[in-house]
């Protein structure tokens, strides 16, 4: 299972990085979103994979590590804020520069 998980994280990272390197703002923001999924999964993995062990006291025998979960929870929310900010920045750039290229020119 760990192997599959790692492959998924790797592919999402690759896809995210490729999109972030594109020249259009929309692709870059899409890439950022993909990357933040990958990063969240990666951070979450630092607590290792546990099935049927939610960190609710009294619910199970073995608990999953709650600390990475707490970190990732806030990371998801902040990731949303960051994606939103980047997206609005892209809109603003389009409004002010007249195109949606990351470097602000059409070549």
């Amino acid at each position: 299972m760990e192997t599959i998980y790692a492959i998924c994280v790797g592919i999402m990272t690759a896809g995210g990085v490729f999109l972030v390197l594109r020249g259009y703002t929309f692709a870059v923001v899409l890439g950022l979103t993909l990357l933040s999924y990958a990063v969240n999964l990666f951070l979450f993995a630092s607590g290792r994979l546990v099935v049927n062990g939610a960190a609710i006291l009294g619910e199970s025998e073995v608990y999953a590590d709650p600390l990475p979960q707490a970190l990732v929870l806030t990371a998801i929310v902040i990731g949303f804020a960051m994606t939103a900010f980047a997206l609005i920045l892209a809109l603003r750039a389009r409004a002010d520069l007249g195109n949606d290229q990351v470097d602000g020119d059409n070549d």
Binding site: E2, T3, Y5, A6, I7, V9, G10, I11, M12, T13, A14, G15, G16, V17, F18, L21, A38, L41, F42, A45, S46, R48, L49
Partner: peptide
């Protein structure tokens, strides 16, 4: 990006 994906995936696997 494939290289980055490979490195991150390996890192994740090694950690897991």
């Amino acid at each position: 990006s494939s290289l980055v994906g490979a490195v991150i995936g390996t890192l994740c696997y090694a950690m897991l």
